[in-house]
Design a protein around this nucleic acid. Structure first.
Length: 175
DNA sequence: CCCTGATTCGC
DNA sequence: GCGAATCAGG
C-alpha cells in the first residue's frame, strides 16, 4: 500500500483523535500497526504520552467517536465494547446503565436507521452491514442492535440470508 | 496472552 | 521512506 496524501491525512486525523495504531491500521487497510507507528514517527507527529493500552487518550477518543443518535432512534442501546483493553468506565455506563433494555425498533419501518458506526465501533452485537463506498470517507456500518447469533440486524439479516433460503428451497425441491 | 507505542535496521 | 522485528510496558 502507498502512503497517498489522502491516507496520510486520514492517519493524522485518526492519530490526533487518539485511536490506537492498530485501529488506524484497520481503518486505512493494507497496512500493519507497525507501518502506522513508523509513519507517525516519520511525520514527526506527537507520540502518546505513555505507551499502554487504556490510556486517557484512548478512552477519551472512544467517547468522542461514539455514534451520534438520530432524533428518532432509541436513546440507549445496550452495546458492549469489543473485548479489548478499553477502559471499563464507558462500558459500565452502557451495559449497567440499561440492564433490562428491550427496545423495539418499530418494525413497520422498512429500512432501519443506520447508527453510522465506524469499523472501530463494531461489537459482537452490532449490525455489520456495510453502508456506502468503502473507498469514500462516509463509509460506515449499519450498527443497529443485532440478534445474538447474527452479524446483522433483523432487517439486514433478511437481506443477507434470503438468497440462501431460496437456494435451500430449490435443493429441497430437487430432493 | 491480549494489547499498547517506541525503536532499530535491512530493504 | 518503508515496515517487520523487536523491545518495553499495561
Amino acid at each position: 500500500m502507498n502512503w497517498t496524501d489522502e491516507r496520510v491525512e486520514r492517519l493524522k486525523r485518526l492519530w490526533a483523535e487518539g485511536l490506537s495504531a492498530s485501529q488506524i491500521a484497520a481503518q486505512l487497510g493494507g497496512v500493519s500497526r507497525n507501518a502506522v507507528i513508523g509513519k507517525v514517527h516519520r511525520l514527526n507527529l506527537p507520540g502518546r504520552a505513555k505507551a499502554g493500552g487504556s490510556s486517557a487518550a484512548t478512552r477519551t477518543a472512544k467517547r468522542v467517536a461514539a455514534p451520534v443518535r438520530p432524533a428518532n432512534y432509541p436513546a440507549r442501546v445496550a452495546t458492549r465494547t469489543v473485548a479489548r483493553t478499553v477502559g471499563a468506565t464507558a462500558l459500565k455506563e452502557d451495559v449497567d446503565g440499561v440492564p433490562q433494555l428491550q427496545y423495539v425498533p418499530s418494525t413497520s419501518v422498512v429500512v432501519p436507521i443506520s447508527r453510522k458506526l465506524t469499523l472501530t465501533d463494531l461489537t459482537e452485537r452490532t449490525c455489520k452491514w456495510p453502508v456506502g463506498d468503502p473507498l469514500k470517507d462516509d463509509f460506515h456500518f449499519c450498527g443497529v442492535d443485532a440478534a445474538d447469533a447474527s452479524p446483522y440486524c433483523g432487517y439486514h439479516a433478511k437481506l443477507a440470508y434470503q438468497p440462501v433460503a431460496e437456494r435451500r428451497r430449490a435443493a429441497a425441491a430437487r430432493a
